[in-house]
């Protein structure tokens, strides 16, 4: 492995996983699964199934391409990059097929999820629907930056590395994004 920015403990784990150690592979998945699913949920417009698919695809790519991972960036950054591409693809697919399929071929409820109480679920969905509408008013870059920085709580440096842009550009997208969201969600966020 090249590069020195991967933390030593994680680098060891990756090395073991690359040699085919299943425990190391499981450990890597466990370490990042929740984080990646949470980001996928936020990036995929709060659709649990799409987020789940994107997460599965991301980890599938991790397993198939682990041998070619050189450690030039941290595994987290690499996973976020893959995830963003997956989420963008899923959103594209979603626009074309999902609405049609849901309308004509059933509601597509997922057996991997246990439904929380209906009232709680409705309130949550309403809030998320408003946030989604507000987020849709942002540009693609602004949306990504706001999701990664504000919601996920990554550092400016990490966001810049994931998106392949400068920290200045991240700040610029962030300020504009927050300003738009404040206008759109101002009254709600004060509640």
């Amino acid at each position: 492995m090249k590069g020195g920015c991967v933390k030593e403990a994680e680098a060891d784990l990756i090395r073991k996983a690359q040699k085919g150690d299943n425990n190391a592979r499981n450990e890597l998945v466990n370490r990042y699964y929740e984080k990646i699913y949470r980001a996928a949920f936020r990036l995929c417009g709060f659709d649990r199934e799409v987020a789940f698919e994107a997460t599965q695809e991301t980890f599938l790519k991790l397993m198939t391409r682990l041998d070619s991972f050189e450690g030039k960036c941290s595994l987290g950054t690499w996973l976020y990059r893959v995830l963003i591409n997956e989420c963008l693809q899923q959103r594209r697919k979603d626009k074309i097929f999902r609405k049609f399929l849901k309308a004509w071929f059933g509601n597509g409820s997922n057996k991997n999820f246990i439904e929380p109480s209906q009232v709680e679920n409705l309130a949550r969905k309403e809030e998320q629907c408003c946030i989604k509408k507000a987020m849709n008013k942002l540009s693609k870059q602004q949306r990504l930056v706001v999701t990664l920085k504000v919601m996920e709580g990554l550092t400016m440096k990490e966001v810049a590395e994931i998106l392949g842009i400068s920290e200045g550009a991240v700040k610029s997208h962030l300020f504009r994004g927050i300003r738009t969201l404040k206008e759109e969600l101002g009254s709600r966020s004060e509640l």
Partner: peptide, 24 residues
Amino acid sequence: LRVKTLPDIIPAHGPQKAIKRDGG
């Protein structure tokens, strides 16, 4: 934004787990 956008459930994971849908 941080609180309201959290997923309500984190689904179980596994490499062989595929999404099964109830069709119409």
